[in-house]
Structure formats: C-alpha cells, structure tokens
C-alpha cells in the first residue's frame, strides 16, 4: 500500500499460554493519525507495545509474525534503535521526577549518551516545547522540577520529550485517560497539529476521541482486528456488526 509506514504480517502475541493477539494484519499509513479502539482486554495496548517492542519486557511475553517499519522487520532491528524511531507516550504522565523541565525534554539525548552543545540543546528544547504548546507556559521556569507542573502540562511535557527525538512514529497509549477534559482537548489539538509531521498511533478507550482526532480507525475485539477503515466510514457505516454494536454502545 502506498504511504504505509508500519505493516504487520500475521502478528500474534501472548503472555505465557494466554494468546492476546491473533493474526493481526494491518497497514498503518504514514503521517496520519490511526486510532485503535475496542473494549478492555481486546489487545489494543498489547499491539501498541509490540510495535516498539516494549511488549517483550515482560519475561512471559512472546511474539510471532512480523512487524515492518518501512519494510524493515523490527524484530531484526536493535530495540534501542527502534525505540528512537518509534516514540511512546504513556497513559499516565511520567516525567522523570528528579529532572527539571529542561532536562526532561532533552532526556532522550542524555539517556542515549548523545553529547550536544548548549546552544543545540536550547534549540531542541524550545522547538519541542513549542510544538506541544508548552513553551509559553514554562519558558520562565525551565529549571523547575517537571513534577511541579499540572497533569495536563506533564503529559504535554512527555509528548515534547518524545517529539524532541524526532521519531517517525509516535505511539500513544490512552494519553488522556488520566486528564481532565480541558487538558484532553489541548492534547487532542496537539495531535491534530502534529500529524502532518509524524505518524501517530493512538490507543483510546474513548470512542469520541478516536472519532475526533483520527484519520483511520481500527477496531479490536478479543485479540482480533475486526475492522480497519477510514474513521468516517467506521463511525457512519461500519462493515462489521460488532463494530456497530460497540460504537453505538450496544455491546454486551
């Protein structure tokens, strides 16, 4: 498919004997927002964590099948290199508590042992913070602890930390589930703005959120990918009856 950045081929994932994902085949388009939705335990988060190989941190986790990033099998790549190309934002804001706001943004570089000049760092920090619309709020207190920020600001900081590494893909695991509606709206706006430059893949429990911000929507159910189509199509005329039941709230 033209413009595909991530493709999975018969991806299966399990924890021990418990198979979480069953034969997932999906083509995720480049520089678009793709949303994964589905009821709890449907495997969407596991799928997300397979993409940047966080899944394998669990000693019982196993994966079969292939995930290709630009035709390159991610399981043949070095995990650390992969994770620099595929950034991730988590469910709860998790800035590094011992670091300042500035250090948090630049953390990706320091943790990877990349040495930068002060001016380069300043430029990266400002650029990343501007991209997440946080610059104006924190520019006078860059040396404050990151944990002094509000939850919504912390989550935007985490997004900035990821954006600073200039990844090709940003995975977002329910990034607004711990935030209030206003902060959520801000993050959604950001994602809408970021999508021109990055491929965004977002897991969300919130159907409306998937509807609002994504171009493509995937519906997962019991470890299977039941439907993957234009968001508009999924929300106005879903092909699969289960999708219809889920988005209309008739699930059960």
């Amino acid at each position: 498919m033209e413009g595909t950045i991530l493709r999975t081929e018969n991806l299966c994932a399990s924890f021990g004997t418990n198979q979480i994902l069953k034969n997932i085949n999906i083509d995720i388009p480049e520089k678009k927002v793709t949303a994964f939705m589905g009821p709890s335990g449907c495997g969407k988060t596991t799928f997300l964590r397979c993409i940047n190989r966080m899944h394998e941190l669990n000693p019982e986790a196993t994966v079969q099948g292939k995930i290709r990033l630009h035709y390159e099998d991610v399981y043949q790549m070095d995990a650390m290199t992969l994770r620099r190309k595929v950034g991730m934002v988590f469910q709860r804001p998790n800035p590094f508590p011992t670091m300042s706001i500035y250090e948090n943004v630049i953390a990706g570089f320091t943790l990877n042992g990349l040495k930068l000049k002060k001016a380069e760092k300043d430029a990266i920090v400002e650029d990343a913070l501007r991209k997440v619309a946080l610059w104006d709020e924190v520019k006078d207190k860059l040396n404050n602890r990151a944990t002094s920020l509000s939850g919504g600001q912390q989550q935007r900081l985490c997004l900035a930390r990821t954006v600073a590494m200039k990844p090709e893909v940003i995975l977002l695991d329910e990034p607004t589930s711990a935030l209030d509606p206003l902060s959520t709206a801000k993050i959604e706006d950001l994602l809408y703005e970021l999508k021109g430059n990055y491929t965004l893949v977002i897991v969300t429990h919130n159907m409306q959120q998937a509807a609002r911000i994504s171009d493509m929507t995937a519906f997962f159910y019991l470890g299977e990918l039941l439907e993957f189509d234009d968001t508009k199509k999924v929300f106005t005329n879903p092909k699969n009856e289960k999708t219809q039941n889920y988005i209309t709230g008739r699930f059960g």
Binding site: R84, F90, L111
Partner: peptide
Amino acid sequence: IPNTLKEAALALGASDLKSTMKILLPTGI
C-alpha cells in the same frame, strides 16, 4: 518507583543500564 518511569526511559531508546543508573537510582536516592 512506578514501572512506567523505567519504561519511559526505555521507550526513549535508553539502555537498561542507563535507565537504572540515570532514572531509577536518582529517583530512589
């Protein structure tokens, strides 16, 4: 210390050693 903190470091491409030494230890100092 929440596991997500270490995951955050790993997700940025840090090695296990770096994320322990630079994130976990300072946090638990």
